[in-house]
Amino acid sequence: MLLLQVAEMLKKLGLSPQISESEIIIEKKRDIDKFSKEIRFVEDVPMSKNSKWFGLSKNEVLDFIISSF
């Protein structure tokens, strides 16, 4: 139910996320771009230790995604 609430909020902001049983996925270039410009993450929030991106902030990785398009 929380997933549905999050998806609904994203839709209200004009994004079109995909919803599965256990996750919401934002993968369209337009949506990731909009997420990057309008939402982003709290500054200095790090990537998880399990991630190969550990050591970078979530916003830095987001910027990598944008630059990869």
Partner: peptide, 21 residues
């Protein structure tokens, strides 16, 4: 993110996504 270790940069046009779990 798809990462090309030889080129040491991101592959262009790969399926990048943000998930909320």
């Amino acid at each position: 993110l798809k990462f090309d270790k030889r080129k040491k940069n991101l592959e262009k046009g790969q399926k990048n996504k943000i998930c909320f779990k």
